[in-house]
């Protein structure tokens, strides 16, 4: 019985993290799946959301910027706004140019954000990271129950995002995004400003990633630079490609499947390798996932679900 409870508690924890990834994955799907924008800086936008939440909602420490102690809904909204602002800085100079430049610029901003996370002690806590209270944790009392409630909140966020993004994708706005992705010249000839639509999609997608970061920080209660390494970007990309880019259900499914494989392979490595090899085992795990992604791209580029064909209702 105790074992069953333990497994159940672990499952709840697992699902919260998986849904957290799913939120980031939905943001990436809006950028890449629907609009064809190549964002290699997912970890950076995620980090901006997480740090903004910690600064806005966290307690006041001496010599440390922030500690506003704001209520969580406000902190999350602030996190999304801040991420949107950072996204705008990258988007405006690059989105009128070739798509490679966006990839390189997003890579760059993620590197810079990582540097700030590591070194700007006054803002991000540097190597010591930042603590923040978990919302209503003391009021709920029981950690397992709190995790369960947080899972319910995560499900709600994912559901709202899913419905919202599906509605957007079906809307005239979403159709313009796909039109730009498929044939920019044709979309432009119909009088649509490709750059403007791209900037909107990019900023909105990044804000969703910022929300994912905010949810992560609030769930864990402690963040540091180590949480936002490039591997995070790669995980979210793998999730989207495995699930099927251009498909919101695929993005959610991919997040759960890949996170399950990731934790499972981590467990297997942990069991197979001796203690002194554990650090190298983590490296080997990343190598394996990299190879899986490459194989998928070569042999099954559509992912598990793939993109549904959207045809006019009148056909």
């Amino acid at each position: 019985m105790a074992d069953l409870l333990g497994i159940g508690a672990y499952l709840v924890f697992f699902l919260v993290v998986a849904l957290n990834y799913a939120v980031a994955c939905l943001g990436l799907n809006l950028q890449w799946g629907y609009t064809g924008l190549f964002n290699v800086g997912v970890a950076g936008f995620f980090a901006v959301g997480a740090y903004t939440t910690a600064i806005l909602a966290g307690p006041d420490y001496p010599g440390q910027f922030g500690g506003f102690g704001l209520p969580f809904p406000l902190a999350w909204a602030g996190a999304m706004a801040m991420t949107g602002l950072v996204a705008l800085v990258v988007a405006v100079p690059t989105l009128r140019l070739r798509h490679d430049y966006l990839a390189i610029a997003t890579f760059g901003i993620a590197v810079v954000i990582q540097l700030v996370a590591q070194n700007a002690q006054w803002l991000t806590g540097g190597a010591f990271g930042l603590n923040l209270p978990r919302p209503l944790f003391d009021a709920v009392g029981d950690p397992v129950l709190w995790n369960l409630l947080y899972l319910a909140l995560s499900v709600l966020v994912v559901a709202v995002l899913y419905v919202g993004l599906e509605t957007l994708a079906q809307s005239p706005w979403g159709r313009v995004l796909r039109a730009i992705r498929e044939d920019e010249a044709a979309a432009r000839s119909l009088g649509k400003s490709a750059a403007l639509f791209r900037i909107q999609a990019f900023v909105l997608g990044s804000m969703i990633m910022g929300l994912a970061g905010a949810m992560y920080a609030s769930f864990v209660g402690f963040i540091s630079a180590q949480d936002f390494l490039p591997i995070l970007t790669f995980q979210v990309w793998t999730m989207l490609i495995v699930g099927g880019s251009g498909n919101n259900r695929g993005a959610i499914l991919g997040a759960i499947v890949v996170w399950a494989l990731w934790t499972l392979s981590g467990r297997v490595m942990g069991l197979l390798l001796p203690a002194e090899m554990q650090a190298r085992g983590a490296a080997l795990q990343i190598v394996l996932i990299g190879v899986v992604l490459a194989l998928l791209l070569v042999f099954r580029p559509g992912g598990i679900l793939g993109e549904r064909r959207q045809v006019s209702r009148h056909l």
Partner: peptide, 26 residues
């Protein structure tokens, strides 16, 4: 699709980098 090549190169980069960390240690 040049863009598939970019994500593939990103994946290859992570794999190659971590292969070094695995073989030679960090």
């Amino acid at each position: 699709g040049a863009i598939t090549l970019i994500i593939a190169s990103f994946g290859a980069a992570l794999a190659l980098r971590n292969l070094i960390a695995f073989l030679y240690g960090p």
